[in-house]
Nucleic acid binder design. Structure first.
Lengths: 114, 114
DNA sequence: ATTACTGTACTATCCAAATAGTACAGCGCG
DNA sequence: CGCGCTGTACTATTTGGATAGTACAGTAAT
């Protein structure tokens, strides 16, 4: 699975969102160990520093935690995961309607376009 | 009307999209004169250079043209405007579905969330 | 103990975006 | 003419993201 990173937005943010999605969609399960920073960096073809920045952010959000010398793991707090899943979905939907409205397209038409 | 620019993406790109929307939504009509670069820059609270970069891009796209010492005007080519309108809407809808799919949300649920 | 892996913490460098400031050419109007 | 507006074209500087490279501490397996 390719990472499809574009240059219009900070790469580390795109990575954060990508891994967020992988967690809320269940691709990574609560308690799962993530690949190491270095592994992920190779996979995504970015600098390890960039990947670590993304991981630090995921930690701040509360989706992962790290064991200093052992690795990084998905939180076991399923409520937290579900909360973020709902929040992401809501924000994405609102953003979609906002853009469409800006183009002069109402909700009905926005739904029809899907 | 505020410009709502965020710092997560290049400002000039956000401006381009904003003015694109204003044109395809009919807020600016074909042949309308745009405010000057300097005026727009003040309005959006950005540097004139940034605004000019955005305007140059709009010109490249074919939505506006400039009269060197007179001002900048919306194209009178309504077909071009409509073409871009359809293209923007399509791209936005696809992007929405892509994000939702990444979160593990299918089309039906994505529609329901609107 | 050695080896290999983990996260983490630095410094240095590069590049694009954004800013600040200045300047010039042409049009229109009083 | 002179004034003010227009787009346009520069230079210089700053800032944040990304890169490259190195280093250290702690765990686990051999």
């Amino acid at each position: 699975m390719s990472w499809n990173l574009d240059s219009d937005r900070p790469i580390f943010l795109q990575i954060v969102e990508r891994i967020e999605s992988d967690i809320v969609s269940g691709k990574y399960l609560p308690g799962d160990k993530l690949p190491s920073v270095r592994e992920l960096a190779v996979e995504a073809a970015v600098n390890p520093n960039t990947m670590q920045k993304a991981c630090t952010e995921l930690e701040r959000i509360g989706l992962v935690y790290s064991q200093r010398t052992n690795g990084r793991f998905v939180t076991e707090d399923k409520k937290q995961i579900d909360r973020i899943r709902k929040e992401m979905a809501k924000r994405t939907a609102q953003e979609y309607l906002r853009k469409m409205k800006e183009m002069g397209i109402d909700r009905d038409e926005a739904m029809r376009l899907l």
